[in-house]
Amino acid sequence: MSQLFVVCIDDERAVLDSVIHDLQALNEAFIVEACESVAEAKEVIADNLADGNKLALVLADHIMPDELGVEYLITLNHEEQTIKSKKILLTGQAGLQETIEAINRGGLSYYLAKPWKPEQLQKVVIEKLTDYVIENDENPLQYAQHLDSKRIFEAVAQNRLNFD
């Protein structure tokens, strides 16, 4: 059975550990992967996709040594298996031009500045994952306990009305 997965990318291990810690409640319903580079993220995503899993969300820093986060989000937004994933840029270093580029070409779902507050990160990630499951999952109810249950129930009810 395929699972939804989340990939967090940041070249600073302490920052990455903080993100993973802030998102630990998602581990019950999602595979949450931590990657210290875009190259590592490419491998993790390829392996998960090969296993039949679906990329629901990518949370990426911008300034990284091998490839910029914005460039990678743009790449993901042009690939069939990852175009629907939600993309969050978590950075303190992206300038206006890079952010505009991420929005216009990268399908950026949200921009979150460093430093962040844990509850702010959790809220944004839950909102974007809720968007993803409503838009792409045949059975979003299975995520209601972990995401925005009110929105999921409303979407399911609306879909039933549309079929009647």
Rank of each mutant, 00 (worst) to 15 (best):
M64R: 10
S37K: 09
L147G: 02
I74V: 15
E12A: 10
G107I: 00
E154L: 08
L16Y: 10
E154F: 13
E28V: 04
I83Q: 15
E154S: 10
V19G: 02
V38Q: 04
P115N: 09
D22C: 10
L108Q: 09
A41F: 15
A50P: 01
Y111I: 00
E154A: 13
E28T: 12
H21G: 10
Q81M: 11
P140I: 00
A34Q: 06
E40Q: 14
A14Q: 12
P65H: 08
G107M: 02
N48K: 11
V133R: 05
N53C: 06
D137M: 01
E154Y: 13
G107V: 00
S18I: 06
C35K: 02
L16Q: 07
E71M: 10
L49N: 04
F30G: 07
L121S: 08
T130S: 09
A102N: 05
I100C: 07
V70N: 02
Q81P: 07
K54M: 03
W116C: 00
G52C: 06
P65E: 11
D22N: 15
R105K: 13
R105S: 12
T75Q: 14
N136V: 00
D17S: 14
A41T: 09
D164S: 14
Q142E: 14
C35P: 03
G92Q: 06
I9E: 04
G95E: 03
N136D: 03
A34H: 05
E67D: 01
Q158V: 01
M1C: 04
D137R: 04
G107K: 05
A39T: 11
V7K: 01
R160A: 10
S109M: 01
L26N: 05
E67K: 12
L26T: 09
E138Y: 03
L57F: 07
L161Q: 10
T82S: 15
E98Q: 13
Q97C: 02
V6Q: 01
E33M: 13
N53K: 06
T75W: 11
C8L: 14
K123P: 01
Q120D: 14
M1E: 12
L68N: 03
L49M: 07
K114R: 15
Q122N: 09
A50S: 13
A14P: 04
K128W: 11
A94Q: 02
A25V: 09
L76H: 09
N48Y: 01
L68D: 00
F153P: 00
S85Q: 08
G92A: 11
W116G: 00
P115G: 08
E28A: 14
L49Q: 11
L129F: 06
E12N: 10
L108G: 08
V32P: 04
A29L: 02
L161M: 13
R160V: 07
D47E: 14
M1K: 06
A39K: 08
F5C: 10
K87M: 05
L73K: 03
E36K: 09
E98H: 11
R160D: 13
V15I: 15
M64A: 09
P115I: 06
L68F: 11
V124F: 10
E79H: 12
V70K: 01
Q120T: 13
G92P: 04
D137P: 01
K128R: 15
D10A: 06
T130M: 03
D148R: 05
A29Y: 03
D137F: 03
D61H: 08
D66G: 03
L121D: 12
L26H: 05
V133W: 05
A34R: 12
V133G: 04
A113T: 15
D137S: 02
